[in-house]
């Protein structure tokens, strides 16, 4: 069963923290631009796709994506999980 939106957001926050342990907790929100601020790399994006697929029980094809679809947790949830 797909994760609910609140659970999915929590999983995504924890995953981003695991990739960028030095992230500033005071300013890190669901609107933080995770690629623009260098919190994840191309290798991490592969894992992010796989994580979203598992959370949403969907299949993602990177060739159909626009970069802004991954810009923040808010945007990821709107694009893939809502």
């Amino acid at each position: 069963m797909p994760a609910n939106n609140s659970d999915a957001r929590q999983v995504l926050r924890e995953w981003i923290r695991s990739k960028a342990p030095s992230v500033d907790e005071a300013t890190f929100t669901d609107q933080t631009k995770i690629i623009e601020e260098g919190l994840i790399t191309s290798v991490d994006v592969l894992e992010l796709f796989l994580l979203i697929e598992e959370l949403g029980e969907i299949e993602i094809d990177a060739t159909e994506l626009e970069p802004d679809m991954l810009e923040s947790i808010d945007r990821i949830c709107q694009t893939f999980l809502e």
Binding site: T41, A62, T63, L70
Partner: peptide, 9 residues
């Protein structure tokens, strides 16, 4: 299987 390559840089 779908393509997962997505260059952020």
């Amino acid at each position: 299987f779908p393509d997962r390559a997505f260059a952020v840089e």
